[in-house]
């Protein structure tokens, strides 16, 4: 990779941030004016939401399983194995459910968006769309943005649920805990603030996945190699942003709810 001067690097970075901000603003604002592409929104909901169900269910389930397994081993030292349900529920709902679902959906869909839109870019299909009088941001980015934010919210709920179920399976079959006690403890452990925190995070993650994926797709340059680069960058940037924003949202929520 060629070295560039700090000045050029800074200018390029600021220009990219500016372009990204404009894209985000237009993608959000487009929903409030016509034309709206509802059919594309539903198609993307199916592709992003329903299509991501298998990986989200599998990831959530086995995360719950391993969480129960690891925490039970540690809790045994303090004679508190019965608190496994608390730990699994709190970890899944507040942190692991939202973050892991975000990362899995990012790996599957941010890459898909960047490669699909990037391919359209390098084959002049985006220019053709503009030449035919259609705003590509309105047609391609806005449906993906709203579909991702909406579906990631529900995918996170599914992930939380199957994670707690996975923890229950391990606790009951391998640790010999009582299922009723496990679920009772899980339920008691969760407070309003925990659920709000866990369900606020996917709204941010969904926004990041769609906007970063579409941004790298829309700015793809350099043929098929450029599409590959855009795809990789989309996954890397969206994953890192999800984790950074997760930290910021967690801190804000702890400030608001005190836990």
């Amino acid at each position: 990779m060629p070295f560039v001067s700090p000045e050029i690097f800074a200018k390029q970075t600021i220009a990219s941030v500016q372009e990204y901000s404009i894209l985000c603003w237009r993608a959000v604002a487009n929903l409030f004016s016509r034309p709206r592409y509802w059919a594309d929104v539903y198609t993307q909901m199916d592709s992003i939401g329903v299509g991501s169900m298998p990986i989200v269910v599998l990831t959530g389930f086995f995360t719950g399983c391993v969480l129960a397994l690891q925490s039970a081993t540690s809790l045994e030292a303090f004679g508190s194995v019965s608190l496994t349900g608390n730990l699994v529920a709190l970890s899944m709902v507040k942190e692991l459910g939202p973050v892991l679902t975000g990362l899995m959906v990012s790996g599957r869909n941010a890459s898909g968006m960047a490669s699909e839109i990037g391919s359209m870019r390098v084959t002049e299909q985006i220019d053709a769309m503009r030449a035919l009088g259609t705003d590509p941001v309105r047609k391609l980015v806005t449906p993906r943005l709203y579909a991702t934010v909406f579906m990631l919210f529900f995918l996170t709920i599914v992930s939380d649920a199957v994670g707690i179920a996975g923890g229950a399976l391990v606790s009951v079959t391998l640790m010999g805990l009582n299922a009723s006690s496990y679920f009772h403890n899980s339920y008691r452990a969760l407070q309003y603030g925990d659920v709000v925190q866990g369900l606020t995070k996917p709204l941010f993650s969904g926004f990041i996945i769609a906007t970063v994926g579409c941004f790298f797709g829309m700015t793809t340059k350099g043929g098929t190699q450029g599409v590959g680069k855009a795809t990789t960058q989309a996954v890397v940037y969206s994953s890192v942003f999800i984790i950074i924003v997760d930290f910021i949202v967690s801190r804000a929520m702890i400030g608001i709810f005190g836990r």
Partner: peptide
């Protein structure tokens, strides 16, 4: 503005170098 250009382009047809059909 781009939004105004979209209306103007309704009067213009364009054939691209590599066809640029939506695949």
């Amino acid at each position: 503005r781009e939004t105004d250009l979209f209306k103007l382009r309704a009067r213009i047809g364009m054939v691209f170098q590599e066809s640029a059909l939506f695949d």
